[in-house]
């Protein structure tokens, strides 16, 4: 079986600094691959490079075809990134946040139907459809950010630290939502996460990224035990 998303020898450079140095991996259709590792290890850069939000060298192939090199075109090709820290459009209503997610596919897909199904799944957001997104709780904003990405009809979803700064109950809600939508939309997920316990709930395999290189590929279940990375120091500091 060939991987749906294939990353070969990916490198990201900011000036003199190499954030990602020659990373390769493949993800099967419908699989969730976690990338774990300490802050500054290159997880975010890796995810942004896959979604073409930062420049990189090496290849990113989707079903054997190179993912186009601009962010707009990558979204069009089905690779959509959910930013760290949620970054919902705080001054736009919940409904407009979701509509903005559909901008690139507005003529190609029935985005209103998808928004309706998202509302069914997330009644809390449906109730607050006309509320400014900046007024939502952190957990609701995270669900909205994921929902906004789903509005672009992705086949590959790149999730950057979705559990960061969330309360334990919000983390459970986000986990459940991610499981459901991945099933429903048959998506491939690249999960960049420093909370190893959270990663273990969603992924079967995990790459351990250290200083921009893959140190090892592990069974994600082993991450759930004594956490190999200090997960909480940084997330506490970010709140």
């Amino acid at each position: 079986m060939t991987a749906q998303l294939e990353v070969r020898d990916l490198a990201v450079r900011y000036g003199q600094a190499l954030a990602v140095r020659g990373v390769s991996f493949g993800i099967e259709r419908g699989e969730t691959l976690a990338v774990v590792g300490a802050n500054g290890g290159g997880k975010s850069s890796l995810g942004k490079a896959v979604a073409r939000l930062v420049g990189s060298t090496g290849d990113v192939l989707l079903d054997g075809t190179p993912v186009p090199r601009t962010a707009v075109a990558a979204v069009g090709a089905g690779v959509v990134y959910v930013p760290e820290g949620r970054m919902v459009f705080t001054q736009l209503s919940v409904a407009d946040n979701l509509r903005a997610g559909a901008f690139s596919v507005r003529r190609k897909h029935d985005w209103e139907a998808r928004r309706a199904t998202l509302y069914e799944r997330l009644p809390r957001l449906a109730e607050r459809a006309s509320v400014r997104a900046g007024l939502l709780s952190g957990g609701e904003q995270q669900l909205l950010a994921i929902g906004r990405a789903l509005m672009a009809f992705p086949s590959v979803l790149v999730l950057d630290e979705p559990s960061l700064g969330l309360s334990p109950s919000a983390v459970v809600t986000v986990t459940d939502f991610l499981r459901e939508i991945q099933q429903e939309y048959d998506m491939t997920v690249l999960l960049l996460e420093q909370n190893a316990a959270f990663a273990a709930k969603l992924a079967r395999r995990a790459l351990v990224l250290e200083l921009g290189v893959v140190r090892e590929v592990v069974d994600a279940a082993t991450l759930a035990e004594p956490a190999p990375v200090p997960a909480d120091a940084e997330s506490a500091e970010r709140q």
């Binding site: 979204v75 930013p83 459009f89 705080t90 736009l92 407009d96 997610g101 672009a152």
Partner: peptide, 14 residues
């Protein structure tokens, strides 16, 4: 409105 609100977030949704 979306680009004015958060340019990076806007680029993530194309």
């Amino acid at each position: 409105r979306a680009c004015g609100d958060d340019e990076f977030a806007a680029s993530t949704v194309g």
